[in-house]
């Protein structure tokens, strides 16, 4: 790596620096409400779900595909979990593998439709996601369903380490695993070439179709994990919960691609981006701004992130 290149290092850690600056700014303005450990442990714990959804997006994005259905996978899995657990009394050790398989199945459907019919994944996953939302509303009768097994909450939000809910560590663990796979395995390189040089990869013997299919399955499974943790965090399933997560996850994924390994979707960049965005939003609401700042921040961040990365790469035409 170009360790000695200062400008490159500033680019890598630019977002981290801005994040720290934002913390200091809000901390100076509201030291007793914003700059407290309890506020930060809430931020870290409650946004673990968003981190996992963002990580789930990073896999197909790296392979050059979009997965707009991931947030609906989350909602669907969350609803299935709540129904199985609260209404039918199915034990968690049955529910967890079942919903992970469901997530993988949705990913496989996304992949199969995209690859077999050669339709853009943006369209396929938009349709599949909306269809899943319909199923979610149907099976839940559009009601929020509570009374989920306590163990799920216990192991999502109640159990803490260093004062931070355990869900945060799941997200960090997942980011670490993804970082390893993307950087240190042949599969990571195959994923990268599938996204950034598909013809080069194909001629070098990569089964690009299989790699893309696997990336959709991985994203479906991560959506399911996020759904489980979401259910554990709130203790219930709300049929419209996931819809609010899709844009923030995209904003974080694209913003994350401007740091740590600039120019590439990457797990640590995504983690930093999620917490940077959430810190900013939290700070603004502590200052008294109302919920509209969320949309301002997430929407603005998505546009700014793609603008920045295009400026850095010299405004070449790009197919994302």
């Amino acid at each position: 790596m170009r360790q000695l290149n200062l400008a490159y290092q500033v680019e890598r850690f630019g977002l981290v620096i801005v994040w720290v600056a934002v913390i200091l700014l809000f901390g100076a303005m509201r030291p007793d409400t914003f700059l407290t450990w309890s506020n930060f442990s809430t931020i870290f714990g409650s946004q673990a779900v968003l981190v996992i959804v963002t990580l789930g997006l990073v896999v197909p994005l790296t392979a050059g595909d979009f997965d707009l259905s991931i947030a609906q996978v989350l909602t669907f899995v969350s609803m299935v979990t709540a129904i199985l657990s609260a209404k039918l009394g199915v034990p968690l050790w049955v529910i967890i593998p079942t919903v992970l398989v469901l997530g993988a199945l949705v990913g496989a459907i996304n992949g199969a439709l995209t690859l077999y019919f050669r339709v853009h994944s943006l369209i396929v996953t938009l349709g599949v996601g909306t269809f899943l939302h319909g199923i979610t509303l149907w099976i839940s009768d559009s009601q929020t369903i509570g009374g989920v097994a306590r163990a799920l909450m216990q192991w999502s939000i109640i159990e803490r380490f260093l004062g931070i809910p355990i869900a945060f560590y799941y997200a960090i663990g997942l980011a670490a695993a993804m970082w390893y796979v993307l950087s240190y395995t042949a599969f990571g390189q195959q994923l990268l070439f599938t996204g950034r040089g598909r013809e080069v990869g194909r001629l070098s013997g990569i089964a690009v179709g299989r790699v893309r299919l696997l990336s959709f399955v991985a994203s479906g499974v991560m959506g399911a994990i996020a759904g489980l943790i979401y259910t554990g965090t709130t203790g219930s399933a709300n049929p419209s919960s996931g819809t609010m997560l899709l844009l923030p996850a995209f904003a974080a994924a694209f913003l994350g691609a401007t740091c740590i390994t600039p120019g590439r979707f990457n797990p640590w960049g995504s983690v930093v981006a999620v917490y940077f965005l959430v810190t900013g939003i939290n700070g603004l609401s502590v200052l008294g701004f109302r919920t509209f700042v969320q949309d301002l921040c997430y929407g603005g961040a998505l546009v700014v992130a793609v603008m920045v990365s295009q400026l850095v790469s010299g405004r070449k035409e790009r197919n994302l």
Binding site: A186, Q189, L192, G197, S204
Partner: peptide, 25 residues
């Protein structure tokens, strides 16, 4: 060549999983 990617990534792509452990680059 994948122009966005590094020389090393481009050159070593066909080697991965051959003489080097695919799970520990």
């Amino acid at each position: 060549l994948a122009l966005d990617l590094s020389l090393t990534e481009n050159v070593t792509l066909p080697l991965l999983g051959r003489s080097h452990s695919a799970l520990k680059l």
